[in-house]
Design a protein around this nucleic acid. Structure first.
Length: 117
DNA sequence: CGTATGACGAGCC
DNA sequence: AGGCTCGCCATAC
């Protein structure tokens, strides 16, 4: 078998691939963490996508603000912080509408892809 | 090398 | 409707 033996196995995807995929999301659209993970080949790697964005170095041309959770909610590290308001502001400027409780209608604003790896 | 962490997701109460 | 728990995975230490 060509795959790694035992428990040792290479990562299904890396932070670099996350940045690459998120970078393809056009203004006015959003994607979910799980969606990015699925596009990279691992639907269960949603947390890893969030981890990658958290570690995103400034200066990297990645539209991190276009990534939200599966419920259309903004889930940044600073819950209750201005971080959320900042992200929402960036999205609004791009034309992304928010519902009464701050949710985005994924059916309308979710970027379906494709993602070129 | 083992343990802990976290910008998730789906399920359950 | 809202909150809590468990599972999953790539890094940090």
């Amino acid at each position: 078998m060509s795959g790694p033996a035992g428990g040792a196995r290479a990562p299904l995807f890396t932070f670099e691939q996350v940045y690459r995929a998120v970078g393809q999301v056009p203004p006015g659209f959003v994607v979910t963490y799980g969606q990015v993970a699925a596009a990279l080949g691992d639907a269960r790697g949603a947390r890893t996508v969030g981890w990658a964005l958290r570690a995103l170095p400034e200066g990297r041309d990645v539209p991190w603000h276009r990534v939200i959770n599966a419920r259309g909610r903004i889930t940044t590290r600073g819950r209750g912080s201005d971080e959320i308001a900042r992200q929402r502001h960036l999205l609004k400027e791009e034309g992304v509408a928010f519902g009464p409780d701050g949710r985005v209608d994924l059916a309308a604003f979710r970027w379906p892809g494709p993602f070129y790896l």
